[in-house]
Design a protein around this nucleic acid. Structure first.
Lengths: 219, 219, 219, 219
DNA sequence: CATGAATGAGACTTCATTCAT
DNA sequence: AATGAATGAAGTCTCATTCAT
């Protein structure tokens, strides 16, 4: 039942010429525009092509079918999101656990805050494509980045850094998702972000083991 | 662009005869079956009717259109979920904050664990219907129930119980959603549940203010 | 292709009991109501039954199918219309041609004016049923009544009274039809009626042969 | 409840390529064919497309819905009919009233006689679409053309040419309509046409005022 | 390569009619 | 006789995809 990324979803041609790249970009952009303005239900290839300023035929020259187009759009979005999260995590290596966590979470909030509708719209795509494998890959990138960061904490270590990273990401991402799917007044939104931060800090504090009193010769 | 529950989505006929009630139930059940087996993309009225063992005509005698059917299914699910959460919260009134939270969260995990695919499938519906208003109402029921419970804690109080309830629900629900959308091995699943519990406890501990030693005679 | 009045259109049972007659009347009335309020396109048996205050089942106990119902409604209307026209014509027997014509035409205008929407709605039925045979019968009643009247004129006779009656009816009825299908301001409507009268008078004058001056010995 | 020609009824796409124009013509033709052979009740988009030799999809590429198709067919027919009537009227300018009237009426009879079934079928459309506004526009074109013609009569003038034109058109058109809706034997048909002519002549004679003997020196 | 007209399977919905209660 | 729930054929319309130009 699940769509396998093989055959059906692969893009048809790698744009080698500059012109092609422009076209593909226009199509990606068009897809997002339609998604935002018309919603995922009314998203169809004709409309996308129209908005992208190309003909349907052209669209089909770059993507073998509608699914592959959506898949590519999603892939690109997740890649960029994860690139950014990885970068943010790397920047925190070696710092104290609380600070690094706070910084990473804040970075994630930041990006998501810039484009709440896009996030929401893309979830529709995930559901429609059953593209959970793609999401899974992204999540794992996030977890690995967070785990590596946590492992490098300068002020202690974690019994199972990956487990902590896993929950941290799930909690932060899941909370954000709820936050952006609801139409909450900004005041409440920012309060929730504060509460989220409090929770993360409390969690990290509970999971962090202070550095081995290396000087415990008595041990 | 959002679908308002009025006109379009309301049910067409209240089943008066016993026969009707049975039929409507069969339709609800059929919808869920199709949702689970064929996925939301392949869900169509014909298939639902078929699975429910009735004709399309019958389906349309109770629901003016496909959307209203999905809306009703969703509504029923959310109502039941919230009924259960409210009951669980009420049962905890007066107990210590940590214990009550743990119990409530566990109850929620429990229900959701029984039917992971249904949850996932229903999210697809929410997206397709833009039925965020319905979800919002359910969320608010959850928040109120949790806030009332927290306010009754026997071992302290919260500066802003509703804010705590809000985040608690968002974090738990959001985390669960990620948990069930991924196909994680059970081991990891249960580990995540433990981590989630840890996080909740840590958060509650951080938000709970011990009882005012107001009555402290020494005062 | 035409619907023959046989089998399909005949009413299923002649209401012998008073209760039945009441029901049938209610159904007739309901049909007209729906026709006027919802239009012929949205006229369906369920709606008719509803408006008539009976169930569909009952409706089908009196009419074997939808067509027969419409047919009966039409028949009743045409019968009444023609009854009235015949009566009006009979009342004019023996009077001068101009006066009798004017009176008959006026009577026809009168009835039609009382219920322009009904007329219009019923035409829709005629088209849908291809019930031209029924209309034809009514027209012939009209023509016969008018011809008989004209033949009895006290001030002359007509070479072919039936031909005159035929055109007279066609012109009056056709003009009226146009009048009521358009939404003309009353002023123009009444002016048209005057013009119509002028035309009829002129036509009769042209067709009427003065009485044989039998006493013209000089001839 | 009336259908306004805006939005819903307007055509979807202006045929730009030659191929398109051919397709649209085929669709128009197909619609008429179906209308004539199957009747307005059995007219459906599938059948029209089939008869036109195209697919339903193609049909819907040019017309947003069934109504708009019928509307367009009707519009085209009325336009052509009125073009012809206007031309005929213009040709009569300046001639004597009786002659011009007779010529115009005859021209109208002529066209209608060529295609009695089409006329009848199209009336069904008018009823189904409630497209009375469209018909109204056509009627007004007819009235204007006739009024202008009458005003130019070389042998007198009319107190209210437009009123005369209005009734003239109503009577002629209405009579014709009755004539073609009935299945009268040709003999009677042509007799009616003669009678109609007599009536028109009589009416014109009654309405025409001889030229002012303005130069009457005796005055 | 690009275009956009054409295709047709398939989705949604209505409604005349039947029949168990 | 009356009821109204159930039926399912048939109609309208959409949209992913192809292919001649």
């Amino acid at each position: 039942m699940k769509t396998s990324p093989s055959a059906v979803l692969s893009r048809r041609k790698c744009p080698r010429q500059a012109r092609s790249a422009v076209t593909v970009d226009a199509i990606f952009e068009g897809t997002l525009q339609v998604l935002l303005r018309a919603g995922s239900t009314r998203l169809n290839t004709t409309r996308v092509a129209e908005r992208a300023g190309v003909s349907v035929g052209t669209l089909y020259q770059y993507f073998p079918n509608k699914q592959s187009l959506l898949y590519a759009v999603l892939e690109r979005y997740l890649d960029r999101l994860m690139d950014m999260l990885e970068a943010a995590c790397r920047r925190q290596h070696g710092r104290p656990a609380q600070e690094m966590t706070e910084a990473a979470v804040r970075a994630y909030l930041q990006v998501k805050a810039d484009e709440p509708e896009i996030s929401r719209a893309l979830y529709a795509i995930v559901t429609e494509l059953d593209a959970y494998r793609l999401v899974e890959a992204a999540i794992q990138r996030a977890e690995r980045a967070l785990a590596a960061m946590l492992s490098s904490a300068g002020d202690g270590d974690f019994a199972d850094p990956h487990a902590v990273a896993r929950l941290l990401f799930a909690a932060v991402h899941g909370t954000l998702r709820m936050l952006y799917e609801r139409d909450l007044p900004p005041v409440i939104g920012s309060d929730m972000e504060n509460q989220l931060m409090t929770m993360c800090r409390a969690y990290i504090a509970a999971a962090l083991r202070p550095p081995q009193a290396a000087a415990s010769p008595a041990g």
